[in-house]
Amino acid sequence: MGLNRSTLLAFLLIAALIAVPFAAPYIGGNYIITQATRVVIFGIVALSLDLLIGRSNLVSFGHAAYFGLGGYVVAIASFHLANDIPLLGWAGSNEALVVWPLAMLVSGLAALVVGALCLRTSGVYFIMITLAFAQMIYFIFVALKFYGGDDGLSMRSRNLFAGERITNATTFYWICLGALALCLLVQWRLIVSRFGRVLSGGAANERRMAAMGYSIYAYRLVAFVIAGMMAGLAGALYANLNRFASPDMMSWLLSGEFMVMVIMGGVASLFGPIIGAAVFLLVETSLSGATEHWQIFFGPFVLLIALYAPRGVWGLVRGGGK
């Protein structure tokens, strides 16, 4: 029963994401495509964050930092190319197949350094420290006046994809959806693999895992880096969507919103975080369209979810059990 309903929901989600470009001309054109692209990109971030929160019991409150770093890598590479200023001998690049992996690499490296420190602690320390280091990265970019500081950094155009210009919104949507599909596939294999079992074993009972000979730290660090890389990819896509990267992409507020998406959709479920991203953006867009002071309503909404629906939409649909 439960399984059927959640499978149905997953199929509905996939069908809806595929249907968007075909339905868009009738229901709002490029606006809808852009919104759907945001859902897909935030879906990638939420999925990656769930690898930490849902699968590893690591409440990371600084995930926006890796998202923002990914965005900045793309924008900076494009800035150097456009302005003809080499960066340490590199001319910069506008090729997605170069700069997107580079974005993942940089975000992954940052996650490696931050994770290595944060994972020495646990529980509430971990929450506060991931937040603090994300804030540190945020301030570095605020202070980097060369790259626009507070005002952010614009891109003249979207990246080229294998040499082709991505001019139309639908094409870009398909690329983002492809990235999401890839991330979903990777995450799915990760969590059923031996590695994933150790992660979830560590989340379920750390003492037992240690008594069985697992040094859980190394596994968690790898998960932290993988999640950072996925967030970096999403950031690269987001900078392309807006042709713009700014410190706002790294703000603690966004980190909090990513967490809300994960919980809202359902922790430790593959499709939950993506549904969470969709619901979040839908609620946010409709509330902020209705009133300038939408946070007055959105805050209590988040609060109610935390108190009464900790398993999120996915949990409600699946029903029963824990």
């Binding site: 590695f195 069985m212 697992y214």
Partner: peptide
């Protein structure tokens, strides 16, 4: 114990520990 794991998976996790490191990312355990 890992309470949300089946009895078999709890033990399999211990077996896995004896088979060297567990950085295997793709095959279904």
């Amino acid at each position: 114990l890992c309470m949300s794991f089946t009895a078999l998976d709890n033990v399999a996790l211990a077996i896995q520990a004896t088979q060297g490191h567990s950085f295997r990312f793709l095959a279904d355990a």
